[in-house]
Design a protein around this nucleic acid. Structure first.
Length: 368
DNA sequence: CGTAGTGGCATTGTTTTGTT
DNA sequence: AACAAAACAATGCCACTACG
């Protein structure tokens, strides 16, 4: 997952909230409409690009369910226009056209969950509305407590095989929350390993929720979309022993205390410590951040391991790439980079085969 | 072609048995 | 008692097939 993905999640949140705003103003909201609204969170294997198949298979039916219409004979652009027109909300055009949805919900439950919504409609509708309006921690907590009281969701043709209701509901409430504060709690590996690390894997949904929202404001995590992005790396972000955090934008203008890695090492090479060099260093880091939005980028947080950038799962094998940024092509700098890279890599990954790179402002001379 | 829907299975967790 | 290995159990994922 990545910042781009987190942005897609936030986009979906805006779309769902615009639609929900109109929906909840109506006197009556059907089970079908709640189903459609929740379905906007779903995708299929083909979720990218111009002709992504999820649009016709999942997104359009979802929109149709919300509006009580059949859009199967229209293009997405037409549907966007129609809905914006009907609801008198022009911003919906772009919201609908953009890619939305973020969870590949277990297929065997996609249809069976509908009758589950019907059965629990009287509990669910106020819950959805509450998620849409929730402003405080307290309100969200109350929603979570209600979720725990709901029955599990039966599997199609195997009613005895059950899915926990939060797997279905947390994506929906993630989409409805005014500040994207409602965390995704599902069977996702990342989520599960985090819960284990927090010692709440078996402690019930309420304490899981509390443990997760506590992370807001730490390690560069602003909202539930960030939380979901860091996934299984989250354990690295916790408490005082944290070794990593999401890569943040660096200042390239102020003269103040610019954050720079390994201050002590840099001191050895005085030049690099000068303000222009630091600026250049931060500029390079920012460029990296800007051009690699498809990836999750991390930076070191622990004093013993202040690496510049780590690209999560940069190749097809899901390996990470560690990058050291240097503001100059002078050989001492490059030598130091090499040393740092191997040291950091060993600290992070032990004797796993290292994947390393140095980012320089220009091509270095042939001989160092 | 891509998707729905699921049975089988890999993975993870738990208990029992074996060994030092 | 402490640990290791094996057996067993539970879980959720995904590769597969039929189908539109």
């Amino acid at each position: 997952m990545s910042e781009e993905w987190a942005e897609r999640q936030r986009h979906t949140n805006r779309l769902a909230r615009h639609l929900a705003g109109h929906l909840f103003a109506q006197r009556k909201v059907t089970a079908r409409q709640l189903y459609g609204l929740s379905k906007l969170a779903w995708i299929t294997n083909s979720y990218e690009g111009e002709a992504a198949a999820y649009i016709s298979s999942t997104k359009m039916p979802a929109l149709g369910d919300v509006l009580g219409k059949d859009f199967s004979n229209y293009s997405l652009d037409q549907v966007a226009e129609m809905i914006a027109e009907e609801l008198g909300d022009d911003s919906l055009i772009e919201l609908i056209k953009g890619h939305s949805g973020f969870t590949n919900f277990y297929k065997a439950y996609r249809n069976s969950v509908f009758s589950w919504i019907e059965d629990n409609h009287s509990t669910l509708l106020p819950l959805y509305k509450s998620a849409f309006n929730s402003k405080s921690e307290k309100e969200r907590l109350k929603i979570v407590e209600t979720i725990t009281k709901l029955p599990d969701i039966p599997k199609a043709n195997h009613p005895d095989k059950l899915m926990r209701s939060e797997y279905f509901l947390t994506p929906a409430f993630f989409m409805l929350d005014p500040n994207v504060c409602f965390p995704l709690i599902n069977g996702n590996k990342g989520v599960q390993s985090l819960l284990k690390k927090l010692n709440v894997a078996d402690s019930g949904l309420t304490s899981q929720y509390q443990a997760m929202v506590k992370l807001y404001g730490t390690g560069g995590i602003k909202d539930a979309a960030d939380l979901d992005q860091v996934g299984k790396d989250l354990p690295d972000f916790l408490t005082t022993t944290a070794t990593k955090k999401l890569l943040e934008k660096k200042s390239t203008t102020t003269n103040g205390d610019l954050p720079l890695k390994d201050e002590a090492d840099i001191e050895a090479i005085r030049k690099a410590g000068t303000v222009p060099q630091r600026r250049l260093h931060n500029q390079l880091t920012n460029k990296l951040n800007k051009s690699l939005t498809k990836f999750t980028l991390l930076e070191g947080k622990n004093h013993s391991c202040m690496f510049d950038v780590l690209i999560k799962q940069y190749d097809n094998d899901g390996k990470d790439l560690l990058i050291e940024v240097k503001s100059s092509i002078e050989s001492p700098q490059i030598r130091m980079a090499v040393g740092q890279l191997f040291d950091y890599w060993f600290t992070l990954n032990g004797d796993e085969e290292p994947k390393l790179a140095v980012l320089l402002p220009e091509r270095p001379r042939k001989r160092l």
